[in-house]
Design a binder for these strands. Structure first.
Lengths: 102, 102
DNA sequence: ACCAATACTAAGTAATACTTAGAGGTGGGG
DNA sequence: CCCCACCTCTAAGTATTACTTAGTATTGGT
C-alpha cells in the first residue's frame, strides 16, 4: 500500500466516513467516486495535490500528514495541527533548541 | 508556484545544488533532467511520490517537508527531522499534552 | 440466508508527465 | 564588449498515468 493510501484510510477510519462519502465531501463526482477512492487507498492510483488538500480539510488533518512516511512524524503533525498559534511557536522554539544542542 | 515547487527550490538553494545536479543525484536521466527539474520547480508538472522521496534524501529533509503548505509546519519538520529518537519522543509528548490541555 | 452498504476491479478514454530540441538568461575572463 | 560555460526555461510530440464506466466481490446487520 502507498503512503497516501495508508494515511487516507487511517484518517478516514478515525472520523468514521465511507470511502464514497469522503470522496463526495471532497468534491469528486458521484459517478466515479467509488472506483477512484478505492484506487487511491489501495495505491493503484495517486490523487493530485489539490485533491489531497481537500481530503485533508474534510478529515481535519494537515495536508502534510497524508504524505507522512514515518509514523512518529504523522503523529506529531496531527497534534501540532490543532494547537493555537502561540503553542505552535513554543513547539517550534523547543524543537529548534533541541536541534542546536547537539 | 506549486507547494512542491516552492519547497524544492527552498531546500535546493539551502544546500547549494543546481536543478540539474539535484535531479541527477535523485536518479533522473541526464537527457531530460534539466527540463523536468524546471517543470517541477515552476509547477508545470508534479513529480511522483517515489521521486519526491529521492529528492528528500538528497536534500536531507523529511519527505513531508516537500509537501508542506504552511511555513510553520515546514520549519518544524526541518528541525524535528534531525532529532534523536529520544528527543523526537519528547517533542511528540509535549505537543500531545499541549493539545489535550484545551 | 438475505439485503443494503461498502469496497473493489478490468478495460477503455481522457488527462498528465516525460522527452526532445533548442532558446533565453547570468556571470566571469579576456 | 564578446565569448564561453553554466543554468534555467519552453513548446510540442510521445509515453505514461489517472479517470470513467460498468459492473463484481465483500462485509455487516437482521
Amino acid at each position: 500500500m502507498s503512503v497516501i493510501g495508508k494515511r487516507l484510510k487511517e484518517a478516514r477510519s478515525r472520523v468514521g466516513l465511507s470511502q464514497e462519502r469522503l470522496g463526495i465531501l471532497a468534491g469528486i463526482d458521484e459517478m466515479s467516486v467509488s472506483a477512484r477512492m478505492s484506487q487511491y487507498e489501495r495505491g493503484v492510483h495517486t490523487p493530485g495535490y489539490p485533491l489531497v488538500e481537500r481530503f485533508a480539510e474534510v478529515l481535519e488533518v494537515p495536508v502534510e500528514y497524508l504524505y507522512a512516511k514515518d509514523d512518529d512524524t504523522a503523529e506529531l503533525l496531527l497534534y501540532f495541527h490543532r494547537l493555537s498559534a502561540d503553542n505552535k511557536a513554543r513547539v517550534i522554539e523547543m524543537t529548534k533548541n533541541m536541534d542546536l544542542e547537539r
